[in-house]
């Protein structure tokens, strides 16, 4: 698993027992406008990587240029037909602006699972959230998985990452048959 970052907007104050205050939540999504009309989804290109690195740094607070260059090399090999690194871009004069990206690949027989598509990373620019970019990216990679012959798409989300959980749930994803287990080795 690489990473997952929020694709929706900042979640307003949490509900608390005995009296929620959800007024802020009511208006959060209402002002959003779809960004998808002028958006293109396509495989990542070398020229996109600088923006991918910048977006990742913006979201995670950590610049990882070597890591992203390495992923680009691995995911963009012509022989690679079951790994997908897609970007959402919008025209910006003569060039394009990155709105978000998604990475995933078909994996087979791990954990006893029949081949399925795994979404490893998904990120959307903060000022583009709640505008449908994440959903379009997810739909696009689902289409790629489907074309690869798999009938199931999976991902893993930190239990505490409610925004991302809301996003995937809203996209129709539900709990799968596996349970992640871990052990402290210190």
């Amino acid at each position: 698993m690489l990473f997952m970052r929020a694709v929706a907007g900042k979640r307003p104050k949490q509900a608390s027992r005995g009296g929620v205050r959800l007024e802020a939540q009511r208006s959060a999504a209402a002002a959003a406008e779809p960004a998808t009309q002028s958006m293109t989804i396509r495989p990542v290109r070398a020229a996109d990587i600088a923006q991918v690195i910048a977006l990742d740094e913006q979201v995670t607070g950590l610049a990882k240029p070597d890591y992203w260059q390495g992923l680009f090399q691995r995911y963009s090999r012509p022989s690679q037909t079951e790994q997908f690194f897609l970007v959402a871009v919008a025209p910006d004069g003569a060039s394009e602006t990155l709105l978000g990206f998604i990475l995933g690949e078909v994996r087979a027989w791990e954990f006893g699972s029949a081949p399925c598509g795994w979404v490893f990373a998904l990120s959307v620019r903060a000022d583009q959230r709640l505008r449908g970019v994440g959903q379009v990216l997810l739909d696009a990679i689902a289409g790629k998985f489907r074309s690869s012959g798999v009938a199931k798409m999976r991902t893993m989300v930190a239990r505490g990452n409610q925004l991302l959980m809301l996003f995937f749930r809203a996209g129709g994803m539900v709990s799968g048959p596996y349970m992640e287990l871990e052990k402290d080795l210190r």
Binding site: R11, A15, S16, R17, G18, L22, S27
Partner: peptide, 19 residues
Amino acid sequence: FCGNPRRTTLLDLIELFEQ
């Protein structure tokens, strides 16, 4: 209903009535 259906979770509703 006057809330935001895309931001109101089942947990938000349930915790109004029980822990």
